[in-house]
Design a protein around this nucleic acid. Structure first.
Lengths: 348, 348
DNA sequence: CTGAAAGCGCTAACAC
DNA sequence: GTGTTAGCGCTTTCAG
């Protein structure tokens, strides 16, 4: 078997095998109605010439591209990059191809171009894995109904009638805060992510849920907004300690900021976890090696990506068979608590 | 402007505008020879119907897909993911599309499938951004000459006659070690990455270069192999200190392992940097927030990706014009030293 | 079992 | 300026 220097087409194979193009096509597509001897000869020539069917021509006539469009942003963040890995692996498993688009500025709303690029390349479906930031979802209410292919949205506020898969960030925030409370901490602050991110707002709500359920007072001074970076984690901790000096525990809304907070705490005279408990969100591979190892919330990011692929394939199949459009209800994936040493209680 | 529920083709536009398909084609391709009035009418219909040219059909006839195949692995690592970001952004800038393939097991040599998938989709070039691991480059010596499209390789040992772009890992390793030496440290150990990775071997060579130049002895006990993870960094530091107790500085070959080492050092009774200096490699965003902040080597990963795109486009253009194949000589990107607090010398 | 004809959506080359 | 014809590489009828 060898690849040729120049791409070979079906006619050349047909010609050198002494058959018609249709016969070659049948062999390639493993149709039963080919004489064994003919099939053998054709296969031999295919192998010898290194023939590869042109997927473009095939897509054109079959009206199926076997391609999914995937739009992501902030690959430098843990969440998006793990999600993409999950998406890609599942797409490969089902034998599809992945056309990738990275949004440099995910907060921007003008998505028509991206969508059109993908559509012009005849993707069969689109996975929109861009974090919901600001109003960058405004377009979707009006665009979605008229999209010629199914679109599935990741990591955003579930909306009625739209296929959405998200992590239950609110539940995760609640989980984190409840853990702090259950460890006997009394004064729980929070360092949020960028508040124009949906995830950030949800995690904050989860924090509030837990405090309300526990009948704790909530004041504005307990809340400081970070921007997801370690730098902001360090800085925000300073703000927080100044405004809310009695704080004995803090929910930091991602692991990077938690790292910053962990580093800054000693500078403010606080030992972690004795004088200040810290809990993060994400469970990045490094989190176990922070000082002290970080208690945090693990999200099933890869699973979310894989699920998105499976769901969109379902939608594509349903469309093809003209089944009444099944809009899968929003799916929420439950995060889980990972206990390490940065939030060990004083009670024990 | 509105997208239609169903994709519209050039004939429907032609028909409703009362012209021929050819005229629509001319308008779409901004050819000059169309009457202004006709153009206006056609554009109006296009807008109204939400017509998007079918890129597949276009590629078929023009024999240009405007698509690049990109193969990456280990997106969970800092290097590959930053490289991909650089690649994608440059590809978008030049108006191409990106067909992505992730290799789940980059150490495996059987790449024919991946290549064929990409080729069958008529990519105009392939960027192979998979780390060189073990003998997973064996295929390339025999395959490359017969590839129907240009292939450019990232992050591997430069090979004569092949287009390769890599970071100068050896230079980086040397830079790191020289810094340690210049700070007055005497006994320099190393925790390498997986030694079947080219990068790991290069960084080790760089370490040796620096020691040899400084006329220091090199013994096997100064070297311990890690596996790039924080866990292995912690563990390897233990090994190293046991075998090489007089060590006062260590070059840890990536930031994740350096994090592990940083965490483990106090457990072995070593203060960083007073009793043990640590220098990393990568300059991940978190490195500045380790305790203490990590001195490390910064690589121009995004730039490498962008460069790869520009180079492969050059090769494609050269091919198209039948210019004698310009094989760009191997390109080595210089890393730079980022000084922070984990390797501050005793001299000062 | 195999081949001939038609056509997927588009554009290059030629007519008018 | 604009329409017609042909054909990119493949597969789907439909004959034979």
């Amino acid at each position: 078997m060898m690849s040729p220097k120049k791409q070979v087409n079906i006619w050349q194979v047909a010609h050198t095998a002494g058959v018609s193009a249709q016969t070659v096509s049948r062999v390639v597509n493993e149709r039963p109605d080919v004489a064994p001897e003919t099939r053998r000869r054709v296969l031999e020539v295919i192998d010898q010439l290194g023939y590869q069917p042109n997927a473009l021509a095939r897509s054109l006539i079959r009206q199926r591209s076997h391609t999914l469009g995937v739009v992501v942003a902030r690959l430098d963040h843990y969440g998006p990059s793990r999600t993409l890995i999950g998406i890609e692996q599942e797409i490969r498993t089902i034998g599809y191809s992945l056309l990738l688009d990275l949004l440099p500025r995910p907060e921007v709303e003008d998505v028509a171009q991206i969508l059109n690029r993908l559509l012009s390349r005849q993707v069969e479906g689109i996975i929109w894995a861009v974090p919901e930031i600001g109003s960058n979802r405004n377009w979707l209410e009006q665009k979605t109904p008229q999209m010629p292919v199914p679109v599935i949205y990741l990591s955003m506020q579930p909306r009625p009638g739209l296929p959405v898969i998200s992590i239950d960030n609110r539940g995760g925030g609640r989980l984190a805060t409840e853990h702090l409370l259950s460890q006997g901490f009394q004064q729980v602050g929070i360092i949020t992510g960028c508040m124009d991110w949906w995830e950030a707002r949800e995690r904050l709500l989860g924090w509030q849920d837990a405090l309300v359920t526990a009948s704790r007072a909530i004041e504005a001074r307990q809340i400081v907004e970070g921007d997801w970076t370690a730098a902001s984690g360090a800085q925000s901790l300073g703000c927080l300690l100044e405004r809310f000096p009695e704080m004995d525990a803090v929910f930091v809304c991602n692991d990077q900021m938690a790292l910053g907070a962990l580093q800054a705490a000693p500078r403010f005279g606080r030992q972690v976890p004795n004088q200040l408990a810290i809990i993060g969100f994400d469970d990045t591979p490094e989190a176990a090696y922070f000082c002290p190892p970080l208690t945090t919330i693990r999200q099933q990011l890869g699973e979310m990506g894989a699920l998105a692929v499976r769901e969109i394939i379902k939608m594509i199949e349903a469309n093809r068979q003209n089944i009444a459009e099944i809009l899968p209800g929003p799916i929420l994936l439950k995060p889980e608590l990972v206990i390490r040493e940065s939030a060990v209680g004083k009670l024990y």
